[in-house]
Design a protein around this nucleic acid. Sequence first.
DNA 1: CTAGGTGCTCTAGTCACTAGAGGTTCAAGA
DNA 2: TCTTGAACCTCTAGTGACTAGAGCACCTAG
Lengths: 138, 138
Amino acid sequence: MFSIGALSKATGVKVPTIRYYEEIGLIDPATRNAGNQRRYDQAGLERLGFIKHARDLGFGLEEIKELMGLNGELGQDCHAADQIAKAQLEKVRSRILRLQQLETELERITHLCEGGTGGTCQVLTALGDHSQCLGEHG
Amino acid sequence: MFSIGALSKATGVKVPTIRYYEEIGLIDPATRNAGNQRRYDQAGLERLGFIKHARDLGFGLEEIKELMGLNGELGQDCHAADQIAKAQLEKVRSRILRLQQLETELERITHLCEGGTGGTCQVLTALGDHSQCLGEHG
DNA sequence: CTAGGTGCTCTAGTCACTAGAGGTTCAAGA
DNA sequence: TCTTGAACCTCTAGTGACTAGAGCACCTAG
């Protein structure tokens, strides 16, 4: 049996975050010892490890709840889990595209300072004026 | 003089967001007409346009406050504005890198379903087990 | 037996909004 | 001039995923 601190060290999830997960019902309420402190077993450790890894992969807590619901049932829900993972992959890809557009614009804007002629700030002007942008980004 | 709704249409910033910006001091309190409704002039429009564009470029409201403070002073602070923009560019680049790592892992995981042999779900297993990952991503 | 590290609950704060309730004002048509 | 309905007002509360702090209780090693 682990204390909450030991569980935190083992999984890399911070102590208040573990309590938060319990509060919102993402993990079951832990059993308590005589002094009202939370105690966790191996199953609790694995469950939290799953959550940590899924969070690191960018899944939201609601998606994780879905994945864990499926996990409890096993079997044919592999397809449903795959759908969630594929949706997540699409989200990640579109975020990358958007950020790459921002990168292009910011590169252009930061290059304006090197060639600045003094007087009004070209960087600030460019930040305020979308019509100067090369592509769409908003 | 524009109403808040007209300003919203002109800039693409939603009405409650404009009021929120006023509340947190990002824009000056608008003048009011006889019936206590906000009225904006051309300067207010440009200021909000600047904010909108900077938000679209991924700047936080605190950074925008800084940029607008500099904008009021002009001149040698071009360098400071450029620093903020360059920092933003770095943030965007590191976010892109992180997301590309996630993309790799998620591609791998979603391919597991196609070759699934039934029984335990390989997708769920992979989601829960970081040691199966090819690279670091957390 | 004591000290300090760990645990407990509860409240409030973060960021950048968004939603809703319940009331007031404005502008256009009859 | 009156009426109607859209737009406006303030205020409170909610979102996601935590984080910070106050003020206690408990646990364990020396």
